[in-house]
Structure formats: C-alpha cells, structure tokens
C-alpha cells in the first residue's frame, strides 16, 4: 500500500520534471527551429543556446509579480496553475514504454481528454479574471475553439477504441507492437489477424488537426492572436504567470504528440519491430513536435469563423462518417 503511494509521488515528481524540462527546452527548440526556417541562427551564443532556457527562467522568476487593478485576484492567480497542472497530470497515465508508465489506467484516454478540457477553462479564467477586453475576447474565442475541436477529436478516438476494444493507453500501444504495418494509422493492420482499415489515415489527419487546435498552436492560435488581440488571454500576465502559460502550452504539445504516437503511430514500438523502447517513443513525439513547430512558422492564422466552419462543417461530418464506415468495416471483417 505504502509502496503505491510512494510510487505515485515519484511518478508525479518525474512527470513534473519531465514536463518542465520539456517545456523549457521546447521553447528553445521552437526559437532555434524558427530561426532555421527563417534563415537566421536563433539563440546560439551561450553554449549553442543551451543556457537560454535557464536564463529565461531566471528572468521570469525574478520579475515583479503584477496583478492589475480591477482584476479578479483569485481567478487571476489560479488560471496559470490551471493551465499547467492538468498537463502534468496527464503525464501520469501516458506509457513511455512497456515498463515506464506511472499508472496504467483502464480509462486513460478518457482521463486525458478530461484534463485537456481544463485547458480551455484556464484560458477562460485568465481572460475573464484579468479584466482586459482583449483578454475576454481571446477567452471567448479559445473556449469556442476548444469546444468545437474536442467533438471531432473524441469521435475520431472512438474509431480507435472500437478497433482495439480498450481505452487503456498501454494496451492500445501494445496492440500495435511489431512493426509499422501493425500501427493504427496503417490501412492494413495485422496485429491480431488481418484487418482492413482504409479510413485510418483520415482519422489520423483529423486527430492531428484537432490536436493543433486544442493546443492553440498556429494556424489556430486565435487565443493569443498577436496582431489582433495584443497577446490574447495572457495580455495582463507577466513574470511567472506568463511563464506557466508558456510551459503549459508546451506541456500540452508534448501530451498531444504522445497521444498521437500512442493512438496511431505504435507508441514505443520500432517501425521494423526491432528493439522497442522508450527511445522510439521519444523520437516519434519529437518528430511530431517538430512538425508542429514547422507548421506554426509556415502558415498564417485562420479567422475565427474559418476555424469554426472547419470544425463544424468539415471535420465533424467527416469524422462521423468515418466512424460509421469504420464500424461497418469492423463488422464485415
């Protein structure tokens, strides 16, 4: 009994450390990546820029904490925590490899989505609590965006759950072991007998787009649309409050990439069935994160109605149709 609690504490500490380190260095990766894409070096002077995240961290932590007059103090303070905490909590159930998993849950998928919906809430509280018009507008945008994109995302996940028959992330990943032909994204899946899934690439695409939108990344970063809403929901946040939002964003990206990897790309499995392990998992998620960064620095921002139209008029019908066909195919084969 004691051991379980001890394990859980260790897991949470490791999750926090992993999330924080990831967030810090992903910011650097983003800045260097942006630099590379934009034909400039990016932060590179102190040890190839490796000391940049600590410097930013020190600076943000030692900055004056400001609460604007008229802001709702409680909401203002709690919002950044709410942005960061669920992301860290989600790490608990993500299996990094066959053995490295803090707590394998039967409803892991469900839990991650439950925590993910907190993200929208944090943005709403931040925008509302800071009593800033730009903030409120950004908050309303972000909430409508989160709601619209959770629907197709969840519908897509149902196809996976139907195929695998489980909501346990560890099991979902284990079922895809062996090689890339066993992965869920692959149209012809052979892990436990032959399965024709021609629609899985579509599911993957929808899920990928939705995770971009859920993490408020460009081209869907309407919550912090810099050219319109100054800095969006975190306009009034300085110092570490802003830092937490920043870290929360990157932690969410890691969660999103992990989820895509587990659901579609075979988790910790090697593409050719050799030496499965945590390194494959990390390789996959960082490749996905790189693609996120790449997309961010390539595309302009969509409009709010373009964004909602994309979800309600295109993604949701397609994902529903996809679900229906997949169910039919499962019945046939």
């Amino acid at each position: 009994m004691d051991l379980t609690i001890f394990n859980a504490v260790i897991a949470v500490v490791i999750a926090i450390a992993f999330a924080a380190a990831n967030a810090a260095y992903l910011v650097l990766a983003e800045r260097r990546g942006a630099g590379r894409i934009q034909r400039r070096p990016g932060p590179n002077v102190n040890l190839f820029g490796l000391l940049q995240p600590p410097a930013d961290g020190i600076k943000l932590m030692t900055k004056q904490l400001m609460i604007p007059g008229g802001a709702d103090k409680a909401l203002f303070m709690v919002a950044p925590v709410l942005a960061m905490a669920p992301a860290i909590m989600s790490f608990v159930t993500i299996p990094f490899s066959n053995t490295i998993v803090a707590h394998s849950m039967n409803v892991g998928v469900l839990m991650i989505f439950a925590f993910a919906s907190f993200g929208g809430m944090a943005i709403l509280l931040a925008g509302w609590g800071s009593r800033n018009k730009y903030g409120v507008m950004a908050a309303v945008r972000a909430v409508s965006q989160n709601i619209s994109y959770e629907v197709p995302m969840l519908i897509t996940v149902i196809t996976i759950v139907m195929m695998t028959g489980t909501m346990n992330l560890h099991e979902i990943a284990s079922l895809q072991s062996g090689g890339f032909w066993n992965w869920n994204i692959f149209p012809v899946s052979m892990s436990d007998g032959f399965m024709l899934q021609p629609l899985m690439p579509i599911s993957f695409l929808i899920f990928f787009i939705c995770s971009l939108a859920e993490t408020n990344r460009a081209p869907f970063d309407l919550g912090e649309a810099e050219s319109e809403l100054v800095a969006g929901f975190h306009t009034e946040y300085g110092s570490m409050g802003f830092g937490l939002f920043f870290m929360g964003e990157y932690a969410n990206i890691v969660i999103g990439a992990s989820l895509i990897t587990i659901l579609f790309l075979g988790g910790w499995g090697c593409p050719f069935g050799l030496y499965p392990g945590v390194w494959w998992f990390l390789l996959k998620i960082y490749l996905l994160i790189f693609s996120f960064i790449w997309i961010r620095w390539t595309f302009p921002r969509t409009t709010i109605y373009g964004l909602l139209n994309l979800s309600w008029k295109i993604l949701i019908p397609i994902s529903l149709f996809n679900l229906l066909l997949t169910a039919g195919l499962l019945k046939v084969f």
Binding site: P41, G42, N44, V230, A231
Partner: peptide, 12 residues
C-alpha cells in the same frame, strides 16, 4: 537579435 536572446518581441 535572437542570438543574444532578445528577439522575443512581446506585444504586451
């Protein structure tokens, strides 16, 4: 400017 970590232009 980003070489010196100063390229993060913040609008707020």
């Amino acid at each position: 400017m980003s070489r010196f970590g100063a390229e993060v232009f913040r609008p707020s």
